[in-house]
Design a protein around this nucleic acid. Sequence first.
DNA 1: TGACGCACGTCAAGAGGTTGACATACTCCT
DNA 2: AGGAGTATGTCAACCTCTTGACGTGCGTCA
Lengths: 145, 145
Amino acid sequence: MRQVDFEDSPGYALKRAQTALRAAMDAELREHGLSVPQYSSLELLAQQPGLSNAELARGAFVTRQAMHQLLGGLRTAGLVTGSGRGRDERLSLTPAGHERLTGASQAVAAVEEQMLANFSADRRERLLADLCALADNLTPSVNRS
Amino acid sequence: MRQVDFEDSPGYALKRAQTALRAAMDAELREHGLSVPQYSSLELLAQQPGLSNAELARGAFVTRQAMHQLLGGLRTAGLVTGSGRGRDERLSLTPAGHERLTGASQAVAAVEEQMLANFSADRRERLLADLCALADNLTPSVNRS
DNA sequence: TGACGCACGTCAAGAGGTTGACATACTCCT
DNA sequence: AGGAGTATGTCAACCTCTTGACGTGCGTCA
């Protein structure tokens, strides 16, 4: 039972790679007490403090609603805090959030390194550019500010 | 508000591309009355008739249980049928299943073509190989039969 | 042959996400 | 200034997939 030919489908390969990455990240992050979406939110907030709920949701590729309840968990865990009320609340990481993130971030970096094993710097750069091109080709409606 | 630097993360780019592809496929397949997992199952079965529930589940990157109930829908829709009982049931597409798939398959091919717009044959081939390498690097435990 | 391990099919329960809806606030356009 | 369109926060209901568990059939090894 070997693959036939749909392995040649870029869509299938994309899904396969993403699924594998997700599983690997999930396994590593579990030891840090974080889920993948939680980690993503923390990383996003660390690099772009002051984001709102909706902005964070877009960055993590989930709906506002999903991010809303996800943030609830991160708040009660003391990893994320926010200043401002309602619509213009600006979110940021707590010291505990930063600390938790550093460990998790290293673990994720290790996973990415494993994923890119044997990839030269050139190849990595080219792959990154290609992936961005794929996404851009599929979302032409995005406004160019 | 432009991306900072985590856009350089291959993991993030991968997720972004996969999310965009999923959304585009979902929009196209909706017009054919199929969800993405349903289409994936049909495509898988068309290329590898005689698969079992569990094999199909692995190919579609979901659990046996999810595939089980997914198949329920496809069966009642008359798109999939099976011969054999219980454990060694062999699944295959009905004529209606094949017909439904051909239309959907064209739509998906169009989406993939859009995704790969401006990609030369060389670049496509290289990208495909790279994606497979990513997945393989993350799943070293896979047996080589 | 009997026991162990393992994959499968399947049922039930739970977590996590999405869609839908509503009220509010900001922006643009006339 | 006013009104339409749009983005946001938030509540509720729903849906899909996962995790957990159970019984069963098949292979392997002592």
